[in-house]
Design a protein around this nucleic acid. Sequence first.
DNA 1: AAGCTAAATGCTAACGTTAACGCAACCGAT
DNA 2: ATCGGTTGCGTTAACGTTAGCATTTAGCTT
Lengths: 334, 334
Amino acid sequence: MQDLASRLGVSRSTISRALRDDPQIAALTRQRIQELARELDYRPNAAAQALTSRRSGVVGLLLPRSSSFVFANPYFSELLQGLSDVAEQQGYPLMFSTALKPPYEAWLREGRVDGLITLGSSVSDEDVVLLNQLVNQGYPVVVIHAAPRALKAVTIGSNERAGIWQALSHLAQLGHRRVVFLAGPRHSRYARKREHAYWSGVDTFALEKDERLRVYGDDTQLGAYQQIQRLLDGEARFTAVLADNDLSAIGAMKALQDLGYRVPEDVSVVGFDDIVLASVVQPALTTVQQPVNELGRRAMSAVLELIAGRKLESLRLATRLVVRQSTAIAKESA
Amino acid sequence: MQDLASRLGVSRSTISRALRDDPQIAALTRQRIQELARELDYRPNAAAQALTSRRSGVVGLLLPRSSSFVFANPYFSELLQGLSDVAEQQGYPLMFSTALKPPYEAWLREGRVDGLITLGSSVSDEDVVLLNQLVNQGYPVVVIHAAPRALKAVTIGSNERAGIWQALSHLAQLGHRRVVFLAGPRHSRYARKREHAYWSGVDTFALEKDERLRVYGDDTQLGAYQQIQRLLDGEARFTAVLADNDLSAIGAMKALQDLGYRVPEDVSVVGFDDIVLASVVQPALTTVQQPVNELGRRAMSAVLELIAGRKLESLRLATRLVVRQSTAIAKESA
DNA sequence: AAGCTAAATGCTAACGTTAACGCAACCGAT
DNA sequence: ATCGGTTGCGTTAACGTTAGCATTTAGCTT
C-alpha cells in the first residue's frame, strides 16, 4: 500500500478511499489508483480492514449438530443454494459450522462474522435464550423457518398452515372425507404446528374428525411405513393420507402398495416439502412445495439488511400445491 | 483486555499468552487469567489476532459455479459432512463460496483464509494455472478428486480405476461377457478416466471388447434413459450395464424396465458412487461406493497439515463394491 | 555470599488498514 | 477583492492483538 502511495505521490488514505470507491476522491485519481493496484496485483488485507472498520464482511451459518440429518436432506441443498446465490452476488462470503453453542456467541463477539443465520428447527429452548441475548445486544440474527414464539430474531419462514390447507382443500375437492394425517415426532415444535393446521383444516373443509386418523410418526420412510401398516391392521377406514413431510409420504405409499392398495386409485397420498425424490417415486407424489430456494435468498438478504442497520419484520412466504400422480378422486372405501 | 490486565495487575502480553496456553506463562497465572476471562466473558478480537499472527484461522471451500449440480448431488452432502466434522473438531471454521475465479486468489492473498479446498471436477484448465501459481507461492491448496495431471496441488481422491474394475470383476464372476459402459460427458476429464479403466478392465477380465458397448451420456437419468433406449433399438446385445455414475444407472434401469426387461433377471445394472437414492430404487442398485465422507475428512486434515507447514503427498482411497439387488447371474442373451 | 542460569513477566513496536479532522485550493457570489 | 462553501486530499491517531527483546525474580552452584 505504501508502495502504491509513493509511486503515485499520494497518501495511503487516498489509496484506501479510492479502492473503496469513495466518491470523495476525484474520479480521475480513483481510476489511476485502481489501475495501478490491479497492475501491481495489490490486495488490501482483510484482517486489517476488519480491525479498523469493525466489519468482517462475513456472514455465519450455523447448522444443527445433527447435521447428518440436515446435509442428507435434499431440501437443505436448495436452501444453501439460495443463501449462497445472494451471498456471492453481494460479495459477502458465508462461513459455516455445524457446531453448537460456542459459535453462536463466539463468532459474533469475536467479530468473525457480522451476522448470523440459523435454522429454526435446530434451535433448542436453551438456544433461544442465547440467541435472544445476542439479538438484544443488537447483533443481526436471522432464523429460517419455524422458530419458537419466544425467539426475538427475525424469522423467514413459509406459511405452513396455509400449506396444509392447500393439501386438504385439494383432497376435499376430490371427494375425500376421511384423511389420515401422518404427523411428525409428537413433541417437536413444527410437528405440533402442522397438526394444529390439520385439525383446523378438517373443520374448514368439512372432513370427518376422528382422532384415530392422526398418527404420530418420526418423519422417516420406515416410520411412516410401520404407522400405515398398523393403521391398516386396525379398523379405521380412510381414502387419503396427508403426511407432514415427503419422506413419510413416500414411506406411506410404499406400505400401501406392499399391502395391495393402489395409489392413487384406492388411496390418495399427499406429502409436504417437495423434495427431489417426490417427483421420482412411482407414482410421482402430489405435495406442498415450500419455496426453499427463495427462503434462502430472503434470509441472506435479511441479514445483510440488518447488518446495514435497517430494521426488518419477519416474513412468511406462500407455499404451493404441486399436483402429481398420487392423488385421485376418492373411492367409496379403503 | 486492558481491563483484564489491570484487574490482575499483569501486562496485556501476559493475558494474550495465557489465553493461548503459552507454556511460558506459569500454570497458576494462566489459570487465574483464564478464569477471570471466562467470568468477564472476554473474547479476543479475531481480526486483531489475524492481523498480528498472520493467520485467519479459516479454511476456504470453493465450489463450482454450477453449484446447482453440486448441491443437488447427495454425494456432496456427505463430503461436506466429512469436511465440517474435522473442521469443527479442530476449531477451524470453513468459509465457502460458489463463485468463480476471484476468490481463488483473493481469499488467500487477502488473508481471509489460511488454506483452500476445492473440487477437482470443477477445476477448469484455466484454474489449473491459477492454482499452480498459488501452490508455488506456498499457499496450502487441497483438491478433492480427479484433478488434472498438471495440477501441483495435493489431491485427495479415490481409486476410480480400481472401482471400475471391482464392478467389472463382479459382473465377470456372474458370467457376464457383454457389458455396456455408460460413460459420462465425452470430454470431461473424469469421464475419460473411468472409460479408460473400463477398457483395461475389459481386457483383464476377458470381457468382449466392442466399441458399440460404450455409449456417451451426460450423467443424468434422462440421458441414460435415452441412451439405453437407442441401444436397445440397435443390434448390439448385452447382459449387463455399468454406468459411471448412479444417476445414469438408475435412468438405465428405468429404461430397461419400461421396455419390458427385468432387472436383474434379464439385465444386470451396476452404478458408481453409491448415492442415497441407490438403495431406495427398485431393485436396489449394486454400485461402487466411494468413501466420500472419508474424502472430506482427509481433505480437511490435509489443509490443516499444510497450514501447519508440513509437507504432504497426494492420496488415493480405496472404493468398495456394494452388492445389492440389481445384479444377478448372466442370462443367455438380452 | 556472589555469580550465573533459567523462568516468568513487562515494554514497545509493529501488523495494515480506516476514520476524523484539518487544510489548501478553487469556485462563484457579493 | 473578499468571503463562505465546496472539493480533494494529507495527517494523525487509532483498531486490538502479538512478537521480540529487555528485565526482573527466583533457584542453583560454587
